[in-house]
Amino acid sequence: MTYLLMSLPFLGAGLIVFALGALHATRRRTADRYFSSWAAATGALLILTAVFDNVMMMAGFFDYGTEQISGLRLGLMPLEDFLYPIVGALLLSGVWQLLGGSRRGDGGHD
């Protein structure tokens, strides 16, 4: 089984939770902040993943078997590694929104 196939159920769950969070944010009229916050967090996570996965693979801390990956790489890291931060950001954003996010009406800004 490949890492991509193993990740698909988690990606599906992340998309469902994120979509539920988006519905909740739309009802609260905070959808713009919901999507922009998710995009900013996801962008940061993708950059950090690309940098640190490549550094750790260069240092020899780990590698992936060629049979379990698609073969597409960014530097040394397989592209499948980007699914983990994407799914994490989807799940955490959705759960945060569904649990109420910021309790203050102004979105938590001072």
Rank of each mutant, 00 (worst) to 15 (best):
M1L: 08
M1F: 02
T2L: 06
M6T: 15
S7E: 06
S7C: 09
P9L: 09
P9T: 13
F10D: 05
L11K: 10
A13G: 13
A13F: 05
A13S: 12
G14R: 09
L15P: 06
I16S: 06
F18P: 01
A19M: 08
L20R: 05
L20T: 05
G21V: 12
A22C: 11
A22S: 11
A22W: 05
L23K: 10
T26R: 15
R29C: 01
R29P: 02
R29A: 09
T30C: 06
T30F: 04
A31K: 00
A31S: 06
A31Y: 00
R33C: 04
R33P: 02
R33M: 07
Y34G: 03
F35Q: 09
S36M: 05
S37T: 05
A39W: 14
A40F: 14
A40E: 14
A40R: 12
A41T: 13
G43R: 13
A44E: 07
A44K: 07
L45S: 12
I47R: 00
A50H: 11
V51H: 11
F52Q: 15
F52W: 14
D53L: 02
N54C: 04
M56P: 02
M56N: 10
M57K: 03
M58T: 12
M58I: 01
M58W: 10
G60M: 11
F61G: 03
F62N: 03
Q68R: 13
Q68T: 13
Q68K: 06
I69Y: 02
S70E: 08
G71A: 04
L72D: 15
L72A: 15
L74W: 13
G75Y: 01
G75T: 08
M77S: 11
M77R: 02
P78C: 05
L79P: 13
L79Y: 13
L79V: 13
L79I: 13
E80L: 07
E80S: 09
D81I: 05
I86L: 12
V87S: 09
V87I: 15
V87D: 11
L90M: 13
L90A: 11
L90W: 10
L92N: 10
S93F: 10
S93M: 09
V95K: 13
L98G: 06
G101Y: 05
G101N: 06
S102E: 08
R103F: 07
R103G: 07
R103M: 08
R104W: 00
G105Y: 01
G108S: 01
H109L: 00
